[in-house]
Design a protein around this nucleic acid. Sequence first.
DNA 1: AGCACGCCGACT
DNA 2: GTCGGCGTGCTC
Length: 829
Amino acid sequence: MLEFAEGAATNRKTLFVEVILPLAISINYTYRVPFELNDAVTTGKRVVVQFGKSKLYTAIVSAITETAPGKYEAKYILDILDEQPVVTTRQLQFWRWLADYYMCNEGEVMNAALPTALKLASETKVMLNKGFEYDKAALNDKEYLITEALDIQPELTISDIAKLLGQKTVMPILKSLFEKNIINISEEVAERYKPRKRAFLTLNPAYHNQDNLQELFIILEKRAPKQADAVLAYIKLSRQQKVVSKTELLEASGAGESSIKSLVEKEVFFVEEKNVSRLGYNEDEDEIINFVLSDAQQAALNEIRQHFTEKDVVLLHGVTSSGKTQIYIKEIERVMAAGKQVLYLLPEIALTTHVIERLRIYFGNAIGVYHSRFNDNERVEVWQKVLNGEYKVVLGARSSVFLPFNDLGLIIVDEEHETSYKQFDPAPRYNARDAAIYLGNMFGSKVLLGSATPSFESYYNARTGKYGLVELSERYGGVQLPLIQVVSITEETKRKTMQSHFSSVLVQDIYQALDAKEQVILFQNRRGYAPVLMCKVCAYTPKCINCDVSLTYHKHTHKLHCHYCGYKEDSPSVCPACGSTHLEYKGFGTEKVEDELSVLMPEVRLARMDLDTTRSRNSLQNILNSLEEKKIDVLIGTQMVAKGLDFADVTVIGIINADSLLKYPDYRANERSYQMLAQVSGRAGRRDKQGKVVIQTYDPNHRVIRQVIANDYSDLYFTEMEERKSFKYPPYYRIINLDVKHKDPEVLYNQAEYLAGELRKHFGDRVIGPEPPLINRIRNYYIKSIMLKFERDSISIVKAKAIIRETITQFQTTKLSKGSIVQADVDPY
DNA sequence: AGCACGCCGACT
DNA sequence: GTCGGCGTGCTC
């Protein structure tokens, strides 16, 4: 027997696969392929592997080799999950690039890229060993508790049991129960994606013959009129549509389940179970609307196309309301006509039903949507439809760069300056705009960046000729730019005309808008009620127990919240330090603005839009709907209101306090402030009426405010770029940030100093710090930041990253590094 | 990421 | 003493 097996084996190759596991592990692991799966293994397919003592994971095959690993015995892969690869070779290449560029692991990229439903991890299930008799009296309290729970619920997970016992360590107890043969422990992976099934009916072809059909009717009408109705309804329906589902027929005919059942038994109908999409929408005849571009738009489009003949990336710098979307649509149509796919990226918040519907009008079924509000199953369906080419256009947020495109011809990155394109936590800390440019490069596709306030990086690239630059300075349909009025808070306070946080100018403008049945948006870039609570007697301020921040008071919950770790505590009514009742709320957030405005203008219908009011799946959409249906007069919000809101009747915009933006201690503060102010202002006004923007500030002569009023982006750009150059900031320099974290600040200090020293050996004064960041403790970890600045072109950044990686690894092998976490952030925002 | 192993403080 | 928390190392 053994000889036979060996003899056969000589004719068979032994294959090994390198796999990517969905974990933050720095290397890929090698598994052995059982002979019977030799023909089925392909890169890009999912395989089930055991990793560690018991856990099973789905991994992606990244390479196939015939060489056995030298140092260890490879485990076998247990199963192959896919008939066809779910990840393309190009994607694997893209993942590798991302992991390299953003200094993380391929597993972390896989985690971000693959919809959760395609990543299966086994769960440990605990159940009773059926039929085994044991003496309950002999068990200790905890063991008894577990068996009791299993009597009620046959399967428990590890975390169920941890909760049940109220302790973290449960494995030893389970082990002893297992050894006593009382319980069984199993590891299983279950496919999480479940296609949605529907029953479809087809008429027995025998009845395609008129005579037969006639005969059937005669019989049915006499004996089972309901069934006759059903057949009639079917014939009617099948004239209008290709396939008829059971549900549709039930609805259309008024017949019951039983009638259809007997028709199936009589073989009048055949039933077929088919997978149907969850992504359906009203399939009204796709109404392709043709529109004509304005002269300015047409000129811009021509210029874009001209640039595309020699450049891969073009930046469209078009003022707010210049009609960039229509230009995109025309370009998408052209690329689609050439048979290629298009990726259209938008910031998550701008992906509203309104925007989606608008594009559906042009592209109907060929357009797919992908964003974080989709559930697991829906994401898998989009993934599959992109993979099989059913979707020609994908409209999506940041993570849609990970979809399995086959033939991309164009990528559009709208609002390319948006910081939400950058993922901050967890790794990969990628910027979807930059990733999209690389992706475009891989496909030889064109990339169109669009913004009214481009990021300096992109504008720099455009001005230096790396990208094509197209300027569109005319607003579409002759909409005027809003009138901007700056109000000095100091001045109004002196004149005693401020009513809480509202200047007389703003109050008057709000009333005017409301009288004209128009709407108002108020912007305050801070959520909650008050960011600091302070005792007037002893100056005590409640701080987070896990982080180095003061707690924000939220009136809604009457609690103090930490915006960094989510910690909450009851708001004290007396000072915990001195017992005084004189507690003062310092600063103000959206909640307070809402509160005070409702006191000032009780008749006005208010709504608030910030992280706290938009957390659940539909809440954002609900707010937007009420705004559109004019059930809201004034909307108060954080930066969310600056993005993607486009409502015809908003004519007044109030910036409650511009200083909180301008004073932000960051080299990008001015660029950010300008973007924010210009973007919010862009929401004001409509075709027949000039909008009004009121900026309240303590510093009315601030340079950035003057630039916003003058709508002078290029003045901002040139003045700021001078500073960027002299202080060695992007886009002249590239930044890589290393955060070192440790629970003990003393240990951290030594670790960070050591690591910075090691890096200095290679990079000299390109290494800055370590310095404590603005918030130097989060979730009980103290933080030190080491910043590396590299000249844009003079040193190979690829090489530098390799050295950094190596230095970190080196550091982590030393004893000194114990307990530390090092996180890299490339091109941080 | 999860799991085992070993060290150490708190409670019977 | 013993139990359980927590840090550390390893997983093909």
